[in-house]
């Protein structure tokens, strides 16, 4: 067992873990934060996307020990109390989900996308940036609409 400590959604956490522990296992099984999902477990589907020091990464393909000292944000860290993050609200308003399993990863990918490419996102950019996030229900159409609207709302919220 090896000691690890990091900041998750602003809270300092530490534990003794098996070195094999993946970041997603640490979040779900150690911290019992189950908002981050495991879909394919082969770094293709993007259900497990979280932010590590601001970068969107696949937490099923990251060792928890590599994140020692890092700042991690998960889907649980986006809302302010009862107030949804603008990207979460946009997914609800635009019906950007059906079963909802991929949604945490979609939203974490979308929020990081806005941090890199701004709040005015065209459809082509959004579809290209969703290359690593799979949805088997929606056909993506409403997800793309939700991300465009959520990005705009993030711009408005920041003003």
């Amino acid at each position: 067992m090896t000691a690890v400590s990091m900041t998750v959604n602003g809270q300092h956490v530490s534990a003794e873990i098996d070195p094999r522990t993946l970041l997603v296992q640490f979040l779900r099984e150690e911290l019992r934060m189950t908002g981050t999902h495991v879909g394919c477990d082969t770094s293709q589907c993007g259900c497990c996307v979280v932010h590590v020091n601001g970068d969107a990464v696949k937490s099923c393909t990251t060792l928890a020990l590599t994140c020692d000292g890092a700042s991690v944000t998960t889907i649980e860290g986006l809302a302010k109390g009862d107030e949804l993050h603008p990207m979460q609200a946009a997914f609800r308003e635009n019906h950007g989900l059906q079963c909802g399993f991929c949604t945490p990863g979609m939203i974490m990918t979308a929020v990081e996308l806005v941090s890199r490419k701004g709040t005015n996102l065209d459809e082509h950019t959004i579809r290209e940036e969703l290359e690593g996030n799979l949805c088997r229900c929606t056909g993506y159409h409403n997800i793309v609409k939700a991300i465009a609207a959520g990005a705009q709302a993030m711009g408005t919220a920041a003003e």
Binding site: S43, G46, V49, D55, A56, V57, K58, T61, T62, T109, E112, L113, E129, E131, G132, N133
Partner: peptide, 9 residues
């Protein structure tokens, strides 16, 4: 290469 999350790592 890969996708945005893969390129971040």
């Amino acid at each position: 290469i890969g996708d945005p999350a893969v390129r971040n790592k």
